[in-house]
Design a protein around this nucleic acid. Structure first.
Lengths: 102, 102
DNA sequence: CATACGTATAGAAGTTTATCTATATGTTCC
DNA sequence: GGAACATATAGATAAACTTCTATACGTATG
C-alpha cells in the first residue's frame, strides 16, 4: 500500500488518534498507554494499534529492559501532511496560502 | 464523528484519493468521474464516494441542469492538514519547521 | 406529458477492521 | 534455571466499509 493511504488509514481511527496525542511529546511504554487510555482498551489492542502506527512510520520505538518506549514521530506527520497538501491543495501551496495556525 | 476523523476516513481509501486527484483542479460531473476512473468503478460507487467526501466538507458541488458538477475543496484540505499538524506535530509547528515542498 | 438521461438510494455480498480472551515470546532478577 | 512481568501473536467475533446490481428520483426536452 502506498504511503499516503497507509498514513490516512493509520490516523483514521479515534483510538489511534488518542494514542498519537498521548505519545505526541513524551515517551511511554505500552502499559503506560493502556493506563492513560483509562482502561477502556486492552493491552493487546494497544499493541495492535502501535503496530499500525509503526508500520506507517509514525512512531519512534526504543526497547529498554522489559519495556518498549514509544513516541510519536512528528517529522513523519509533517512530511505526510506536506505530501497531502501538495497533492490535494496544489493551488494553495503554489500561492503560499497554506498557513498553519495555533 | 469529529472533523479530524471524518477527514482521515475520507482520504483513507485509494478510490477516493483517485477521485480527489481527478477533481483537484477541475469541475466534473459524476459520469465524467466514472469515465476518468476507466470504468473500473460503477456510477453508484462513485456516487457513494462523493457523498463521503462531501460529508467531510471536501467537495464543492454545483447542480447544472441534469448534471452535478464536483470539484475538490482545496481550502478544506489545507485546513484539515493544518489541524493535523497542530495536533500531531506541535513542536515542528512551534519552531516553524513545517515546510511544504513541491 | 412521456421518455431519456444523470444521479441517488436500497439492499446484498464479500472484505477489512477493531476488539476481545487466551497464550506465546522475551527479558530481568533471584 | 525459574518466576515474574512486559509485550506480541493467534484466533474469534462483531461492526464497518467497499462494491455491486437493481431501481427510484428528478429534470430537461421532444
Amino acid at each position: 500500500m502506498n504511503q499516503q493511504i497507509l498514513f490516512a488509514k493509520a490516523i483514521a481511527d479515534e483510538t489511534r488518534q488518542k494514542i498519537m496525542q498521548i505519545l505526541c511529546c513524551s515517551w511511554l511504554s505500552v502499559n503506560d498507554i493502556v493506563d492513560k487510555l483509562g482502561n477502556n482498551v486492552s493491552q493487546p489492542t494497544v499493541s495492535h494499534h502501535l503496530k499500525i502506527l509503526n508500520d506507517a512510520g509514525l512512531l519512534q520505538r526504543r526497547k529498554e529492559g522489559k519495556q518498549v518506549y514509544n513516541s510519536l514521530n512528528q517529522e513523519q506527520v509533517s512530511v505526510c501532511c506536506g505530501q497531502l497538501l501538495v497533492k490535494f491543495a496544489p493551488e494553495l501551496v503554489a500561492n503560499d496560502k497554506v498557513l498553519v495556525e495555533n
